[in-house]
Design a protein around this nucleic acid. Structure first.
Length: 965
RNA sequence: GCGGGGGUCGCCAAGUCAGGUUAAAGGCGCAAGGCUUAGGACCUUGUGGCGAAGGCCUUCGUGGGUUCAAAUCCCACUCCCCGCACCA
């Protein structure tokens, strides 16, 4: 009858919970290990991708627990944010697409979907679902510490954190552009738009050219070229509007008026006018004072930015082309009554110099690409190319005042700042990937929020502290260090609050809700006290700043605080015991934000001794080689996957799929194979459950070999686990060691039921069970119990290597046997002989001497190039002449390529009694090849019809096979 | 553009930092044999090419170079993925 994995898993989950083995309390007698994983956002069920991070952390926790640490792994739920709110709005609006996702994909009962109009119900639903999944996966979590980020106590904690940041001067306020829905009157993120488009906001500089008291704001991405303006372009066929904005009069395109409303509080529409009305008028360049004409150009897009463009023909291909087109078209000049001579006099004014280009780089670009006129689509390419080259490589020319000589990349920022601060220009924001629609149907605009709160991650002294601490932190894997260092450098102000969503209100400005990446930076500290808050149902109002100051910082007088002294001290004690955090786990997508914020906030709030020690990061999960996505329909919800494969299989498969940072490819066939391997292992273990304790003193060669292998594997797996190389750990503990065990059993074919053999097999199995317990804990508990062991394997001690049980000589000889078999089999295969008699000739003594000499020489540092010469020095060898020279040649190449460890091993064994050993194996060998097997020493071979004995080398006996082809 | 990661023998994937355990682990798939009434599972073997003796040849994105020795070190090129923020 097949083993019912699910009920077995539930049984052990129940027993763990009853025995409370994963509940960790401070214990001064034991070293602690505290690790956390990023808590989930409950807006959808978790899937296999989420499971990877959690399984990794859990296996890590289980390993540390077995290593003797008082290990704490807590969990909470991140309710903060807007996506849940957005979903509830869509439910309220009866959005069929979303409801379909809930019902079909997430398998939510249709009857409760109506309750999802309340965002809290969505969060609670998936919170429950995710928690059940975590329990079904067997995660060793201390659930007494669970909380959500909208619990009043947590809210108090976040308020405390933010007041600290504020008083440390790390909170700033400023203007910030956001994607905005004018109909919903709220900011839009990716999840609020049709097609889940993230608005790509780009900042133009609108430079005000004065035209008789009314400004023409020319929008540009290249404000540094304002020195080279020859004219202004407007589209004669477009509609323009004169408006009053902040007391300024200006003329912009019809479409730009709407956009301006988001950026300026007061927009008054004065009059409409056609673009053509502007043609022929003149406006003054605010930086050079030059008066330039307004001219017509079709390439000007009234839907882009202000719809008014400055013309810099020296550096902008379109401007150059449009000017050329106009000059070549006297008809147009006449239609608008323009001054032909004035236009003829307009020539490019160079502003920057670019190596490899003439004074008018736009000319070069146009020529090289063979662009005809302003309608040619290649103009776009030329513009991009020139923009990039000039931005990175060009310098400002002497005619540009204080900016002369500056690289363009610097001058651009500087000029923009100067123009804006002197009110000669203003920033104009445009959505580059637009038009984007809000889910409500309205078109998304840009809104300039001018009272946005920021956490100032740009603060230089803060960064410096973070840099220093980062150097002391362990990063797993360390490959990520560079990336973290880069992120610390790039980080700027982070908008830390929004107008909507679930979460904690800013304590000093209740119109704002702290957003999710900002309220999740130091909550690992909160777990240490949430157990006590939950147990005592503490009144959140008692959690004052002073209380937190005392618990987390040791500040203030505890007797004056509004919490019972005993409870207060218990909280302080929990924190002091478990902090600092020993390891923080998360997916690699959180490196540029959460994980870095986590370091920043810790160093800002806590004293140095409580700064985090380690970050462990894992890659994501692919399904059958493809990225998981709703549209591909290849997202398997976790609870479904557990039903299909079982928790142990899932855990092992995910961790075995790839090493830490790589994306792990989950495949059905791989998982099924892991499951059958686990079941097979269970069967094997059960059949040895009643074996006795091994007696190492009576061990023979083969026993010593397998015992030695166990030591090697244990030591390898232990070090793999330490650096979270779980794939490697499973590989060695489960696959490699089991292969060795198979070999052992096969070699013992004749004496498999012998009690000594059985006790040795059980000894190996016991080690595998322990090493596999972090990965397949339920199955391992079951075996552990069958083995008659006391207690849970989950809290048993991790296996240790016993150096005294490593037997190098037995390892060498067993390897020798395997290589003999391999060689013999190859000869049989190639020659097609069906063997009747196999003779082995072991190496003569003089070859062994020479071999050891070669090894010793290499070990003492002799250059491989000089090895032959070194060996030839020996007079004994020279006496042997050609035979020796030939042998030396072959021995050199094989000793040089021998791994260092093996060289040492063979040297330490200083020779092997090969003939005696192979002699012991003849029964096995003749069984293996189903023929007669004999061994002779090549020193004096008795039977050697083909003269093979001369080929014998140390650990490489000569082989002679007789038989029919 | 800036930054990060990656291209390994059908697929997945170790190995690269510390060059020689490497024709290159392991898993999957495939094939043969064993077991079985059969299937599944399991065990053994094979899975670049050639080979009538354990060998030889070619191979780790491409092209060069360093070295007694290169998947690994250096240079150039090429292709793919991911992040760039207010959003979890």
């Amino acid at each position: 009858m097949p083993l019912d994995l699910r009920s077995l898993e539930e049984k052990w989950q129940r027993r763990w919970s009853e025995a409370r083995i994963f509940e960790a309390d401070p214990d001064p007698a034991k070293p602690k290990y505290y690790l956390t994983v990023a808590y989930p956002y409950p807006n959808s069920p978790q899937h296999i991708g989420h499971a990877r991070t959690y399984t990794l952390a859990d296996a890590h926790a289980r390993y540390m627990r077995m290593k003797g640490y008082n290990t704490l792994l807590p969990m909470a739920f991140h309710y903060t944010g807007t996506p849940i709110l957005a979903m509830s709005k869509r439910v309220a609006a009866n959005d069929a697409e979303l409801i379909d996702v809930f019902v079909k994909l997430y398998e939510v009962d249709e009857r409760i979907i109506d309750s999802f109009k309340d965002p809290l119900n969505i969060a609670k639903y998936f919170h429950h679902d995710i928690k059940l999944g975590m329990q079904a996966m067997g995660f060793s979590i201390d659930w007494r510490r669970e909380f959500t980020t909208i619990d009043p106590a947590y809210t108090k904690f976040i308020e405390w954190q933010f007041r600290h940041l504020l008083s440390a001067g790390l909170i700033t306020k400023g203007a910030h552009p956001v994607g905005w829905c004018p109909s919903c009157m709220s900011p839009v993120g990716q999840h609020d738009t049709k097609g889940d488009l993230e608005p790509d906001i780009v900042e133009f500089t609108a430079i005000k050219f004065d035209m008789d008291g009314t400004a023409l704001p020319v929008a540009t991405l290249r404000p540094e070229t304002v020195f080279g303006v020859t004219n202004i372009w407007v589209n004669p066929g477009a509609n323009y509007v004169e408006v009053e904005a902040n007391g300024d009069r200006m003329i912009v395109s019809e479409r730009a008026v709407q956009k301006l409303k988001g950026m300026m509080p007061q927009i008054l529409r004065l009059r409409d006018l056609a673009g053509s009305e502007l043609i022929g008028r003149h406006a003054r360049n605010p930086i050079t004072g030059t008066l330039v004409p307004v001219l017509p150009a079709e390439f000007v897009d009234p839907n882009n930015a202000t719809g008014v463009v400055m013309s810099v023909p020296a550096h902008a291909p379109y401007d150059l082309l449009a000017l050329r087109d106009l000059k070549a078209n006297p008809g147009i000049i006449r239609v608008y009554g323009l001054d032909e001579s004035e236009i003829a006099a307009l020539v490019p004014i160079p502003v920057v110099e670019l190596e490899g280009f003439s004074r008018v780089p736009a000319e070069d670009a146009v020529k090289r690409l063979g662009i005809r006129d302003q309608k040619d689509p290649k103009g776009e390419i030329a513009t991009k190319e020139l923009y990039q080259k000039e931005f990175h490589l060009a310098r400002m020319l002497p005619g540009t005042g204080v900016y002369a000589g500056m690289p363009v990349s610097k001058a651009k920022e500087k000029i923009k700042q100067d123009l804006v601060s002197s009110k000669r220009a203003f920033p104009f924001y445009e959505i580059m990937n637009g038009p984007i629609q809000c889910r409500c149907g309205a078109e998304v605009t840009v809104n300039l929020v001018d009272d946005q709160w920021f956490i100032n991650y740009a603060d230089e002294s803060w960064k410096e502290t973070v840099r220093k601490h980062l150097k002391n932190m362990s990063l797993v894997p360390d490959d990520l260090r560079q990336e973290f260092e880069n992120v610390v450098e790039w980080l700027k102000e982070k908008a830390c609050a929004r107008r909507a969503g679930l979460g904690t209100r800013l304590p000093w400005d209740s119109a704002w809700v702290i957003e999710s990446l900002s309220d999740s930076t130091i909550y690992m500290a909160f777990y240490t006290i949430s157990k006590i808050i939950n147990q005592h149902r503490l009144d959140p109002s008692a959690l004052t700043d002073e209380v937190f100051d005392y618990i987390f910082l040791g500040k203030g007088d505890p007797s004056s605080l509004p919490i019972e002294r005993e409870i207060l001290e218990a909280m302080r004690n929990e924190f002091n015991y478990f902090y600092p955090l020993d390891s923080r786990h998360s997916g690699r997508d959180l490196v540029p934000n959460h994980l870095t914020f986590f370091i920043f906030n810790h160093v800002a709030i806590f004293p140095e001794k409580h700064w985090p020690r380690q970050i462990a990061v894992n890659g994501s999960v692919l399904m059958e080689g493809k990225k998981m996505s709703k549209s591909l329909g290849n997202i398997i919800p976790l609870h479904k996957a557990i039903m299909i494969y079982g928790a142990d299989t899932l855990r092992t498969s995910i961790l075995f799929a790839s090493e830490l940072l790589q994306d792990a490819d989950f495949s059905d066939s791989q998982a099924k194979s892991i499951r059958s391997k686990l079941l097979e292992f269970y069967d094997l273990a059960c059949s040895y459950a009643d074996a006795g304790m091994p007696d190492f003193s009576s061990a023979d060669h083969l026993d010593k070999w397998i015992i030695s292998r166990v030591q090697r594997v244990v030591s390898q797996v232990d070090s793999s686990m330490q650096c979270l190389r779980m794939r490697e750990a499973i590989h060695c503990a489960f696959f490699i060691l089991q292969q060795d065990l198979q070999w052992y059993i096969r070699r013992r074919a004749d004496r498999c039921s012998d009690p000594r053999t059985r006790s040795i097999v059980k000894y190996v199995l016991r080690a595998i069970v322990k090493m596999m317990a972090p990965f397949a804990p339920h199955l391992c508990e079951e075996i552990w119990e069958k083995f008659g062991e006391d207690g849970f394997v989950s809290v048993a001690s991790y296996p240790e290597t016993d150096q005294a049980l490593i037997c190098e000589r037995d390892e060498i000889t067993e390897d020798l046997l395997k290589s003999i078999i391999c060689d013999t089999a190859e000869i049989i295969k190639v020659t097609g002989i069906s063997p009747a008699r196999i003779c082995y000739y072991t190496s003569p003594k003089w070859k062994w001497d020479l071999y050891l000499k070669a090894l010793a020489a290499l070990e003492s540092g002799v250059d491989p190039r000089g090895l032959i010469r070194e060996l030839m020095k020996d007079p004994e060898i020279r006496k042997r002449g050609g035979e020796a020279a030939k042998f030396i040649n072959s021995i050199c190449s094989c000793t040089i390529t021998l791994p260092k460890e093996d060289r040492k091993k063979i040297l330490r064994a200083s020779g092997i009694e090969e003939a005696a050993f192979i002699g012991e194996c003849t029964t096995f060998l003749s069984e293996y090849f189903k023929c007669k097997v004999e061994v002779q020493s090549a020193d004096l071979p008795g039977y050697d019809p083909n003269g093979k004995a001369g080929q014998a080398a140390p650990l490489r006996p000569a082989i002679y096979i007789e038989g029919q082809r």
